[in-house]
Each structure stands twice: as C-alpha cells, then as structure tokens.
C-alpha cells in the first residue's frame, strides 16, 4: 500500500507541511525534510519551484523565485532526493506546476518519482479531465497518487466525481484565494467545512490555504482528516532559516 493511504488510516489528525525546494538555500532540501519528520510532521509536500505559480500568493512566489535563482531545477531536485528513503519514512508528495513536469517528460518524471520513493503528486494546473483522459494511466503504472483540489465554489456533483476518482486524499482549498492570503477562518469557511464533512466522501479531506497556527489547524481538523501549512512555514524559514523547525511544529500541535 502507498505510504499516503497507510498514513490516512492512522487514527489521528494529520499535519502536512509544504516547502519550496531550494529555499532558503539550494542545499536545504534534505535537512528540512529530515527535521520536519523528526518534529512529528505526518506528510510533506515538496514544492518544485516554477517561474509563474498562478495559484500562489506573494510568500510562495518569492520563495520560488529565490529557489530558481539558487539554481533549483527538476534534475537537481531529483538528484538531492535520490537517497531520501534511507532516512525518511513519512509520505512525500511533489507539488509543482504542469509545465516543468511536461518539459521533463511526464512518464520520465513519474518513473523518477517512484524510483526515489515519492508517493504522490499535486499539480494544480493539471485539470481533472486532462488527467483522467491522458495521464491517469501513467500515474497508475508508477503507483503515484494524484491529489485533486476542491474549493468552496466546486459544485456538489463535481465534488462527488472528484471523490470517486481520488485514490489518496482530497485537497480542500479553504477559501476562494491564492495561498497565504487569509489567516483566520470565518463563518463561511466553517459552513463550507461542515457541508463537505456531511457529504461523507470516500476520500479523506485535508484542508489547505489559510492554515497558519494552532488555532486554524484546530479549526480545520475539527472537520477534516488533516491540514496543510505552506506560506506560514515559508515565513518561518524567512525569519529563522532552517533553525527552530521543531519549535514551529510544536506550536501548531
């Protein structure tokens, strides 16, 4: 069984952390992953930086720009990750935009992911329809879980469809926004969380966008299986470099 599915079966609320590979320094990738696991994080999203990240707010955009300036590329990332499974056992997901993956070659990319021990992919600008018609067969061949997003504007019918084709979890975008823009959840988020929870979907949901601290983590995981923190962790790296990661994580739980 894929590490993601195994993790989803654990009887606990999951904390997943996103970071941009190659940020703050090119060579920080491995130490950040190892420190996150040691700090008790359940799952990690490794961001493959892109020049034009449409769904991201200023924090992740800036970290991507820095990472690219530092020299991060798809090849460099794969090289850095080649021995990651010797030290890290939690699920690892690569989150990236479609163009760099396309240029690497989709099948070659998937193959490399499996060799390294990557468990899944989140590609925000690869639409559901394109995936199911053209790429699902490749992802499945390499045992990779593709994670789909839903938002407060996604219709119930579409949510049901996405649930049906989801093999891992559903990435539930907390509000109509790009990453890193909201810091508190209001009534509209709560009612959206409740609405989704009451749909009794087959795939567990993990909430992302707007989770930045213990309070928002609690609020999100009251309804969902887990939550993802991205921009707030990037901000932590901005302030502290790669130090005090354990403290940042301890404050969330």
């Amino acid at each position: 069984m894929n590490r993601i599915n195994k993790k989803l079966q654990e009887d606990k609320k999951l904390l997943s952390i996103y970071f941009t590979a190659g940020f703050p320094q090119l060579s920080d990738t491995i130490s950040i992953i190892e420190d996150l696991e040691k700090s008790g994080v359940d799952m990690i999203e490794i961001g493959l930086p892109f020049s034009d990240p449409l769904a991201d707010g200023p924090t992740i955009q800036a970290s991507s720009t820095t990472a690219l300036k530092n020299g991060m590329t798809t090849k460099v990332l794969f090289e850095q990750l080649k021995d990651i499974r010797k030290t890290v056992s939690i699920p690892l997901i690569i989150m990236g935009y479609f163009n760099p993956i396309m240029q690497y070659g989709i099948e070659a990319f998937c193959k490399k992911c499996t060799e390294i021990g990557i468990d899944g992919l989140i590609i925000p600008d690869l639409p559901v329809k394109e995936y199911t018609e053209n790429y699902k067969i490749i992802f499945e061949k390499y045992g990779l879980v593709n994670v789909f997003l839903i938002t407060p504007q996604t219709s119930n019918d579409r949510i049901k469809f996405i649930d049906e084709i989801s093999e891992g979890f559903i990435y539930m975008v907390s509000s109509a926004s790009v990453t890193g823009t909201k810091n508190i959840f209001g009534d509209s988020q709560n009612s959206y969380f409740e609405r989704i929870a009451s749909m009794n979907l087959k795939a567990p949901q993990i909430i992302g966008f707007g989770i930045s601290n213990a309070e928002t983590f609690q609020q999100a995981t009251k309804f969902a299986k887990g939550a993802i923190i991205g921009s707030a962790f990037i901000n932590h790296l901005n302030r502290n470099g790669t130090k005090l990661i354990d403290k940042f994580i301890a404050e969330i739980r």
């Binding site: 892109f50 020049s51 034009d52 760099p100 993956i101 396309m102 240029q103 690497y104």
Partner: peptide, 22 residues
C-alpha cells in the same frame, strides 16, 4: 518557443529547458 503551458493554454512558448518561462 517550444510546446508548453502558459496562462492556462497549451501553446508555443519561450522557456528554459527546465520549463521555466523566460
């Protein structure tokens, strides 16, 4: 340019070998 994705469309675009838009 080379085939790739920009602003939601698959088309010809100027990019690095690594798929970053130039």
């Amino acid at each position: 340019g080379k085939e790739g994705i920009i602003h939601g469309s698959k088309t010809l675009l100027m990019q690095t070998k690594d798929g970053q838009i130039t």
